[in-house]
Design a protein around this nucleic acid. Structure first.
Lengths: 346, 346
DNA sequence: TTTCGCGTTGCAAACGTTTGCAGGATGGTA
DNA sequence: TACCATCCTGCAAACGTTTGCAACGCGAAA
């Protein structure tokens, strides 16, 4: 029987064996670098492979071995370099052990996330990393039931936390807010991230706590709802329209901070003088904008590496427990935050 | 024999068949939505699948079918949203036909590119898209020899052009330069991209031709070598140190234009007034920076879609010829370019 | 010369599907 | 009742590997 399409039949291990005058088993052993092969035969096989232009068929290999050397990656998007950096980190960890990455961009569509997850988990990949998933409880149950290895990245809340890599969101946002307060700011606006992501809630809560801890009161009017996109930060212009404008804006991520900076500028105000702007993430561009953005650094590369390492360990030894890895954020002081100018209002 | 690791054996089509009291063939038919199945059996199978939590094994399916429903993607990087946008386009085209993407980031390391290419091409993927490859002639010969479907994206030059998607680099750069000249600029600097990518050469050549066509002479001192990275654009500061500074800077991509904008600002000059800045690409941020960047738009999303479509067609019907698809660039006029202020020097 | 052991080699089964072919059931028509 | 077409269904082979097990060859030890 022949299911193959017009494509000419591939050269297989058997063709090589015939060419080299050995058994296909021996060829397989040569391919996989096993010992106990007579040097001359090894050479014969090598030559035959070259002559025939043989290259191993991954599908068959995966099927036989029961693993694919591929890990799945579920990302919301590739728009900002936030995800890009994380993927780079994952890449770095996967490279040395010969794992490949299969990529799924969900654009935060819940149906897609769940459809992908089930499809990946059978055969296609040996493990799965979910980056900033929207609502994983909804669909990972089947993975858990089948003991399929997966870890979450940038996810907090829910019982899945104990197999995730994240950062000290609360601490980072708290420190940032304190820093602004210490600079002398009293009216600090906050641009919140997507409210369906627990990390946003943490940052918001920390901001509020920091204010209260300093005896400042939390004004609802100074809390603006964004969605992590740059345009939503831009709309923070609205905040400036208040009768008593803030002297500082703390955005829950850098992208929104960039948007805020535009808006500030558009109002004819100078960043760092008339109004300070603080970000969160420290994506590469943060150092490059004007003025360079003071922000809370997430070690994105390291997060990716950590997630990949954790997953690999668990794949190699399923009894190896998954844990929560929480990496430290760090306040990166640049030039977008300064002490407030002497007030004009009040 | 049992090769499987500790992992408990997966539930297979056979388990489902037993549970439903039918043959495994029937189960396969139900999975693949073939006709000629009695409705009641179909239902029985469906239920059995649910009960057992069955999900099809992609490897085995690929092996049997001779194709994987996966296409490989070789990207230099995920740093800027340039690649991100293209990938989104590819995604869009692949979604409806149920193709997945396996991702390889090369970071422009030639060895990696070539290693990946050979490994992907056997079984793992049904086709390959090479985004902005560095030196594809070096390693695609084996693909061509085996008639493996692949297309290039953002590649010009070499005999591989006739299976690629690109844009009118020359035209775009020419128009942009003319636009600056028409605004009244006479000293226009050019920040070149990576010199090993043919697209850079096209843009540079177009810039030079446009100058000459307008009777202006090309000054070597005004041509700065960048690498498409933002920092390299920043270093264009150097240009400003000339005794006769340019009144406009044309960067071969937006990222370098951003860098240039920083540098300009750092010199205390105002963009659009003291000096104009022109980009190339129109990545999403271009509209968001301050002032919004005048740039040459590449239809990134559409480029991705076009490449994916071309590849899919070729996979479906290998006799379908591959061609060169050249999409139109478009000058997007925003606010970073204005007529030059009356000269101070000279 | 026989025996033992070890380094090599090969056979065959298994991985989990898809699909050509043929056989069985069913129902309509002559 | 016999026959034929049509609709269902199942068997078995094939996809290209990996790997447990058994057998073989050969030199060293007895």
């Amino acid at each position: 029987m022949q299911h193959r399409s017009p494509k000419t039949r591939n050269t297989t291990i058997i063709d090589v064996a015939r060419e080299a005058g050995v058994s296909y088993t021996t060829v397989s052993r040569v391919i996989n670098g096993k010992d106990h092969i007579k040097p001359d035969k090894r050479e014969r096989v090598r030559h035959a492979m070259d002559r025939l232009g043989y290259v191993v068929n991954q599908q068959a290999r995966s099927l036989a071995r029961g693993r694919s050397q591929v890990i799945g990656l579920l990302v919301p998007d590739l728009g900002s370099s936030y995800v890009g950096e994380i993927v780079r980190g994952i890449d770095q960890a996967l490279q040395p052990v010969n794992y490949d990455v299969i990529l799924y961009t969900t654009h935060r569509r819940l149906v897609k996330e769940s459809a992908y997850v089930t499809s990946i988990s059978q055969g296609l990949a040996d493990g799965l990393i979910l980056i900033s998933p929207t609502d994983p409880e909804m669909y990972v149950s089947s993975l858990q039931a089948r003991n399929f290895p997966f870890v979450l990245l940038d996810h907090t809340g829910s019982n899945l936390v104990d197999r995730s890599v994240g950062v000290t969101n609360w601490r980072g946002a708290y420190d940032a807010t304190r820093y602004l307060i210490d600079l002398g700011h009293r009216r600090i606006a906050f641009i919140n991230g997507r409210s369906d992501l627990p990390a946003s809630a943490e940052r918001l809560a920390a901001y509020q706590t920091a204010l209260r801890d300093s005896g400042l009161c939390v004004e609802e009017a100074l809390i603006w709802q964004g969605d992590y996109g740059q345009p939503s930060g831009y709309r923070s212009t609205m905040l400036l329209g208040l009768e008593k404008p803030p002297t500082a804006i703390f955005a829950a991520n850098d992208l929104m901070a960039f948007g805020a900076m535009e808006a500030v500028r558009e109002q004819g105000l100078r960043i760092g003088h008339d109004i300070s702007v603080m970000g969160f993430d420290d994506i590469p561009q943060a150092a490059q904008v004007n003025p360079p953005l003071t922000t809370v650094r997430q070690p994105l590369l390291e997060m990716g590496r950590a997630a990949a390492r954790m997953l690999l360990q668990h794949i190699a030894d399923p009894s190896h427990p998954l844990t929560r890895i929480e990496l430290e954020t760090e306040l990166v002081i640049r030039e977008s935050c300064r002490p407030p100018a002497t007030r004009r209002t009040a």
